[in-house]
């Protein structure tokens, strides 16, 4: 009989690479990334799905990895900040965040860039209002919002 401390096999594709991980049912996706796979680019901050720091793409859509159980993500295709650059070549959004001062302390930046990438992938020329509506779920406690907006708008077409 299965017991509560049993381990579950989770198969996920992360940034194009398949991974098989054994985790307890209570493992969150962000902990699977950070502790089981040593992919620490994704940050956990509020832990309740509100701040956006832990944003990853699950099957192409932005999701909060801190309130997703790893077992729920079994079979999913996941993109993290580590999968945004093309090898050593930064994604235009990453370069734009550097050029326009889109981050200060950096804790929210992975989530900001993954969320913004998802927006630009589906809407390459968003208006300022569309960027605000999309990005309002990604908080920056350094309050660098003007620079974040500028970074995203300058990276759009």
């Amino acid at each position: 009989m299965t017991t509560a401390d049993a381990l579950y096999t989770v198969n996920v594709t992360i940034n194009g690479q398949p991974h098989e991980v054994k985790v307890p049912a209570r493992r969150t996706l962000v902990d699977l990334l950070r502790y089981d796979l040593d992919m620490t680019g994704t940050k956990e901050t509020c832990s309740v799905g509100v701040c956006g720091a832990c944003t990853v793409l699950i099957d192409g859509e932005i999701a909060a990895s801190c309130i997703t159980l790893a077992v729920q993500a079994d079979g999913a295709n996941i993109t993290t900040i580590e999968g945004v650059a093309n090898g050593e070549a930064l994604h235009p959004l990453q370069q734009s965040f550097i050029d326009h001062g889109g981050f200060q302390c950096g804790i929210c930046t992975s989530g900001q860039i993954v969320a913004a990438k998802s927006l630009l992938d589906s809407n390459p020329s968003p208006t300022e209002d569309e960027v605000k509506e999309w990005m309002m779920g990604n908080l920056c406690r350094c309050t660098g919002y003007y620079q974040i907006m500028e970074s995203i708008l300058k990276a759009s077409k």
Binding site: G52, I62, A63, A64, T68, A115, G137
Partner: peptide
């Protein structure tokens, strides 16, 4: 409801 991220989930 909340944000795009939450509405996706």
């Amino acid at each position: 409801v909340a944000t795009v991220r939450v509405r996706n989930m």
